[in-house]
Every structure is written in structure tokens, then in C-alpha cells.
Design a protein around this nucleic acid. Structure first.
Lengths: 355, 355
DNA sequence: GTTATATTTGTGTACGTGCACAAATATAGT
DNA sequence: ACTATATTTGTGCACGTACACAAATATAAC
């Protein structure tokens, strides 16, 4: 409740006019060395803070923001990220934001390339990236760096880039947590399965790999690495998958815990449900519509979530701060909480974020 | 990005001046029946939304807000609630808020009475209540209702009151979740203990009671109610408590799960640690400094949390909406998520709210 | 119908910042 | 020293809302 310092005050203290202070605050240039120094000094001393409210209403500029993520489907992971972004757009409805979504197929590198090309073509003021393909993303970021276009990451961080900030989860910790949970949820001497879902080709996301490593390391640290089995199933051929999974479980009857490193747990849940298998504890990722169903009827024991809405929300908020106020928050990695969701606390995990 | 409708537009459409529209929006009275109807009609049709930014800067009025909760200690539950409130105060630093905290001792009804009296005396514009004593709180609310002073609840809801909104957790669900967790975390045929912490007198918070009921119902629904034991220990006399707990465990050697319905789990954790008891899974509430220690060294198996910061944050935000924009959001009960925190996901549960 | 009073309505200024444009000053070229 | 040009600085209006105050209209009393 201390009295806020205004631009007018800064100007008076530095012995210049408000216009000059404004130029400094917005890096608009055309300021003499002497004025610059004086103003910066005063700014540092007083710890001036923008009045978001007034700057928002006075703002004439329209910002073009490009958002590129895997295709956002309602009720799925990237859909939730988009919801968070939309929520932020709504909250900042006074700022003229021109947001364009460039969705790509995360299993098709060409679609990713074409999205990225379109982005560079339109030359936006800032970009939100939900990355999948590493070198493609690095290439995009390099171009953005050259053009001095700021960008933020959601969901994952790509090395060798310089984003304004990133919003992601510690996937290795997710894997460890997953291991710990399966371990405690199952009887002693149980064995465990890592289920890999496959599509065409055998692309693996780096998120899945990090999770898997954490999972394996958990059991390794307990000297239980020999209790882990691994198999794969096809996302696109349910019948074939069912046969494969059942015969796998037949061959390994001691398996009581089942882990999958992505959000496809519901496919396994369908198989378990259909065949009345109840003694296996299945844990999946992401609070998607399909997985919620599994949680409700008990075919999925638990879900690990990483607050996709919050990620999207903060990503846009961070960009706005960057664009409007030049707040260079030296590339912080914001690591989101990992929520554990089971049947009993499911109803309360609605998009309760907004903070 | 649709063009926002302004007060000026409303005025033109209703055939009146902006001043009259302003009077309607702020319930300032002195408006003729005819104008009122016309304006309300237009408002309903257009779905006018305040521009928070501009209304904040133009606002001259200073709002006095009273906040009364049990004593807020840094690192404990009510400390976190206060942190959330402070966070909201900070976010709305442009609005002239005069917040006064009236802390009371939650184990002393007289201190509560005196706090409430002070509040009524200062006659604030709005109140945030973290309730403990039911009839005291009801009495306060009755007076506030008479004076048309809006109030919100955090942490718990008191029946027979009419708050603007409430931010709390479903304690019964917490208890059920606790039961489910202890059940799955322990070997078959385990028995369970409900540990009640006692102070002077035997006051029990309604939160604890609801949790306990949920806990018992979980086991009842599984036909396992006979596996629950119950005992109590003193918060104020650690040595005596230690003796009591140890002898209790001796008498009931099959106990492998231990539940406490409040945040005092760390006291039990100390006993377990000191005596090298490792086969018992202890679950407590609230992410307090003391409990965090137990989680880290494994003496506490898990903690259930109810986002106290978020509760405080939203409580104040809700009041601001009420005061500034008269948004009567018909007494919604906002039920917070119940977070499950174990060692692996602990590091990421920092006050990550801000949304 | 006239005056006094109460009620309703409209107008104008302030809030703090963004930005366009005009004014002032510095620099370079002759 | 005098233009011409480039650089730097200051001024003023706009943004949409809150609110004080003046103006207009309605109501009451005689």
C-alpha cells in the first residue's frame, strides 16, 4: 500500500520529460547517453513498477502471437494446453492480441516443418512452442533468435535454444514417482511392465524416454531392475494389441503393475476391462477424457498430471510481460507440480488454475 | 478479440448519459424507473463487461478489508493462507486496499470473540473469514449480514451464513482418499490407526471430524471397519505421547498404517524416526515445514494438501470482484483439489499458483 | 401559477501510460 | 557562420471508467 512511483516522478527526478522516460522504458532508442544513464539510475533506485492497468488501456499496438503445438484435441493433453492459453487471452482481453495457432501432426515431421515455415513467414511478435522434433525446433529457434522474436516453451525444453522462459515438468522425476507408486500399490514380489505404444515408425518422444529412465532408475536403486518387463503395442490396431498384451501377461503372470510413459493408458484400460483383469494396477499420464473414464471405473489406478492448462496460461502471460514490459526474466525453467490423481480426488481437479 | 462494448455505447443504446449508466452499474441509486429498466435491458442484451484496467485507475475509493483466521505462522497452514492473500494484494496493488489481519487463537474461544468484536467495531467494507468456532462465526456473520458487509470463507464453510463465496476442500473426500491410500500402501491384512492429537480441553475441528468420517466410511464400505484402531496423544507433552504411542503400537502389532486428521503428523513422525520404526506408513495433512521434513526422510509416507495459498488468493480476488463490480456470483462453493504429495513430487509443489 | 425542494440527469475532469507530432538541440557540410 | 540534416526532447491527446458538481426536470406546498 506504499505509494506507487509514476513515470512522471521518474521524469522529475531524472530532470527530463515523461516522453524520454517512456523511450527508455520501451527501448525505443533516440535517447542521449546522458539522459539514458540518469533515467536508468533513477529507475534502479526507485524500483519503478509498471501500472499494468493503465499501460494496457493506452496500448495502441497490436501483437501477433504464433502458437505452435501438436494438434490440440478437446479433452486431451494439447487441448488442455490450448485451454490455458485461451484463458490467458481472455484474462488479457484488453490487450490487442492476434493469436494464430499453427498445429502440426506430432507424428509427421513434414507437417511440423511446414508449420514452422508458416510461422517464419508471418514473422510474429512472439511465439509459443510446444516442441516435438528436436532439430526442427532448434532450427526454428535459431531463426527466431536472428529476428529477435521472443519465444517460450511449453511441455518440454529443447537444448541449444534461448527462450524467454519455459513451462514444463521434470519428466525424470515423473518416472521415478511412477516407479515408486507402482511399487507401493502392488503386493511384494510383484513384477512390472513398461508398455510402449507404437505408431508408424518408431519415433519416441524425449519426454517418454526421460520418464522411462526415471522409472528404471527407481527400480535399479532398489535392486529390482530384473522385475521390469517391457513390451509394445500398436495404437492403431486394437485387436492385434489386445492379443499381444494378453499373451504378454500370460507369459509373465507375476506382473501386477503396468506403466505407460504417455497418455495412452486408456487403450490398456480397455483391454483390462474387457477381459475382467482386476489385479493389475495400471498407471498412465495426463488427465484426458479417456483416462478419466478408466480412473472412474477402476481400470486405471492412478494418473500423473503436469498441469497443462497452467503451462499454457503462464506461457502466454510470460510473453505478454516480455512484450509489454521488457521484463527479461533470465530464462527461468518453471517446473510444474506433478499431480497424482486417483478416483477419490478426481472430481476436484477441474481446471482450477486462474491464479 | 471481438470489440468490447463500452459504457459510452451502453449509454447511447439506452438513450441516457454515461453518468446514469454508471449509477446503475454501481447501485448508486437516484435513477428513475424508466432509465433503470432501459439500461438493465441493454446491459443484459450486450453482456457488458467491465474493463478492470480502467476502472482500477479511476477508482478513488479506499476499501477496508478485515481478515480473520487462526494465527498465521510462517510455514504452517494458516501462514500459507495468508501468503495467498498477500499475493492477491500484491497483484491488485493498484486498488487501494487497506487490509487488516485479526488473528485469533484457534484453541481459545475468547480470543476469537475479541477478534470478531474488533472487526465489527471497525466496520470494514468486506471480510475474509477462516472459521473455527461455529456459533461465534454464525453470530459474526449475522451482524455482517445486517450491516450488508460481504464476506467470504476460506478453509471451511459454516452453515446458516450467506457468504459471497467460499473456498474450501471436501473434507469427507479427503478422509476417503486417506483411507484408500493407507489401504493400498500397506500389505494385506494390515490394521490401521487413527491418531487424534489433543490439547487442553477436547475441542475437535469439524474438518477433522469430516475427514475421520470419510476415512471410516472407506473401510466400512470394504467391510474392514474392524481393522481400525483409535488412540490419542498430547500435542503439548511429547515424552508422554511417545510412551503412549509406543505402547499402543505394541498392543496392536498388525498396525501398518497410521492416519492423523490434521497437520500434526510430524509429531508422530518424530516418534517413528526416534525409535527406528520403518514398516509403518504415516499419512498426514498439510504441506507444513515440519511435515516436509518427514516426507523427505521417509517417516511420513504421504501428505494430503488443499492448496491454502490458492484459497487465500481467490478469497481476496472474489471480494474485490464483489466490491468493485458487484458481481453477485450466487454463493459458489469452490472446492479445491486435494493434492497427494510424496517424496518424489515434493520439490515441485512450491507456491505455484499465481493464475 | 409560483416558489421551494427533491429527484434525476448530464458534463467535465482525473487517473497513469502510450505514442504521434512538434519543438529544440546537436552535428555535418560547405 | 549558415544551411541542411540528424538526433534528442517535450507536449498533448487518447484510452475507458469513477465521481464530483452543475444542470435539468419532477414533485410538493401554497
Amino acid at each position: 500500500m506504499a505509494k506507487q512511483i509514476k513515470i512522471k516522478d521518474i521524469a522529475a527526478m531524472a530532470g527530463v520529460s515523461v516522453g524520454t522516460v517512456d523511450r527508455v522504458l520501451h527501448n525505443r532508442g533516440n535517447v542521449s547517453e546522458r539522459s539514458l544513464k540518469a533515467i536508468e539510475q533513477v529507475l534502479a533506485e526507485t524500483g519503478y513498477k509498471y501500472n499494468i492497468h493503465t499501460s494496457a488501456i493506452s496500448l495502441k499496438k497490436e501483437y501477433n502471437i504464433a502458437i505452435t503445438t501438436p494438434i490440440a484435441v478437446k479433452g486431451e493433453y494439447w487441448g488442455a494446453v490450448r485451454d490455458g492459453i485461451m484463458h490467458a487471452i481472455n484474462e488479457y482481453s484488453d490487450i490487442k492480441l492476434n493469436c494464430t495457432f499453427f498445429f502440426y501432426n506430432q507424428f509427421d515431421i513434414y507437417s511440423c516443418r511446414s508449420s514452422f515455415e508458416s510461422i517464419l513467414e508471418q514473422s510474429p511478435d512472439a511465439v509459443i512452442i510446444g516442441p516435438t522434433f528436436k532439430s526442427e525446433t532448434q532450427r526454428l529457434c535459431k531463426e527466431l533468435d536472428d529476428k529477435h522474436i521472443p519465444y517460450v516453451f511449453v511441455d518440454a525444453v529443447i537444448e541449444g535454444t534461448s527462450p524467454v522462459s519455459t513451462y514444463s515438468t521434470d519428466q525424470y522425476a515423473c518416472g521415478q514417482l511412477l516407479g515408486r507408486m507402482l511399487d507401493t500399490f502392488t503386493p511384494e514380489d510383484s513384477e512390472f511392465a513398461i508398455m510402449s505404444s507404437q505408431r508408424i515408425g518408431n519415433e519416441r518422444s524425449s519426454n517418454s524416454l526421460a520418464r522411462k529412465k526415471g522409472f528404471q532408475d527407481y527400480f535399479r536403486s532398489k535392486g529390482m531392475q530384473n522385475r521390469i518387463h517391457e513390451t509394445s503395442f500398436s495404437v492403431l490396431d486394437p485387436a492385434e494389441s489386445e492379443r499381444k498384451v494378453l499373451s504378454f501377461l500370460n507369459e509373465n503372470p507375476k506382473i501386477k503393475g503396468m506403466a505407460i510413459m504417455n497418455s495412452r493408458g486408456y487403450i490398456l484400460a480397455d483391454i483390462l476391462r474387457k477381459n475382467g483383469i482386476k489385479e493389475i494396477c495400471l498407471i498412465s499420464f495426463d488427465l484426458t477424457q479417456n483416462n478419466i473414464k478408466g480412473i472412474k471405473d477402476g481400470t486405471i489406478g492412478a494418473i500423473l498430471c503436469q498441469r497443462p492448462e497452467l503451462q499454457g496460461f503462464h506461457a502466454l502471460k510470460s510473453l505478454i510481460r516480455q512484450l509489454l514490459y521488457n521484463q527479461k526474466e533470465e530464462t527461468v525453467n518453471h517446473t510444474m507440480p506433478i499431480d497424482i490423481i486417483v478416483r477419490e480426488n478426481l472430481p476436484y481437479y477441474r481446471e482450477f488454475f486462474e491464479m
